[in-house]
Write a protein that binds this DNA or RNA. Structure first.
Lengths: 117, 117
DNA sequence: CAGGTATATACTTGTGTGCGTATATACCTG
DNA sequence: CAGGTATATACGCACACAAGTATATACCTG
């Protein structure tokens, strides 16, 4: 029932995703960092997992969760037609990226610049 | 209570936004094209308007609605940290957008954080 | 002004869903 | 095996909200 957008409508789930964006985390780590009750964390993680936003790796009794990008990519794709409203010359770049999306994955070039905000 | 994300969680509202992405439309045009009851359209438009997603231009008895990009931009910004999961050299795009963020007049609210109540 | 069109609002109802509390399951260590 | 830790699930409740129906407001045309 819950669509991709419905799922990220929940603030706590967005918080979990944002936390996982930096690095994978176990349930208790999430629980502690976001200061939210453990059943709540587990339940949100279940929703996120079943919708494909995250996946779990088992490490002894811990489950370490990490991002799976596909659903967020869908959001990104939905957003595409609106980008022209705030970006004038990104259009070309966008088409460029579109073409790149189906290009074979190439590894090696990531985050070479420390330009974070 | 309705956040930016909560608002686009509604499929009909997304449909309205997508329709408006192509060009501005009157209420009855939306009603007809999306085949949804008029009160529903008006109500969704109200929500979208109050949240800043759209604005209305008055033309006689008609109200012609058009996109206002700011809230969607916020979504786009939230998405930014995740892009590295599916794009290798989109970093260029990111820097590009970063630069762009401070280029236009004003509107510097990035980094929208909110997890407490 | 009447009649018609276009849009907005009021009110009710049903359903979904997040939360809290309690408990169950799984695994590790001694 | 016992005891502890880590995570998942069950259940009840309260509340937000989308949809439907009916009605109100605004404006245009004759």
């Amino acid at each position: 029932m819950e669509s991709t957008f419905g799922i990220i409508a929940e603030p706590n789930r967005r918080a979990i995703l944002s936390l996982l964006a930096s690095s994978e985390q176990s349930v208790s780590e999430i629980e502690h960092r976001l200061r939210m009750p453990q059943p709540s964390v587990s339940k949100h993680l279940r929703v996120l997992r079943e919708a494909g936003f995250v996946e779990a790796r088992v490490d002894a009794q811990r489950r370490v969760y990490r991002i799976r990008p596909d659903p967020l990519r869908e959001v990104d794709a939905w957003l595409a037609p609106f980008r022209r409203f705030w970006s004038t010359h990104v259009d070309a770049l966008e088409r460029h990226l579109d073409r790149m999306d189906q290009a074979p994955p190439r590894k090696g070039t990531k985050r070479k610049k420390g330009k974070k905000r």
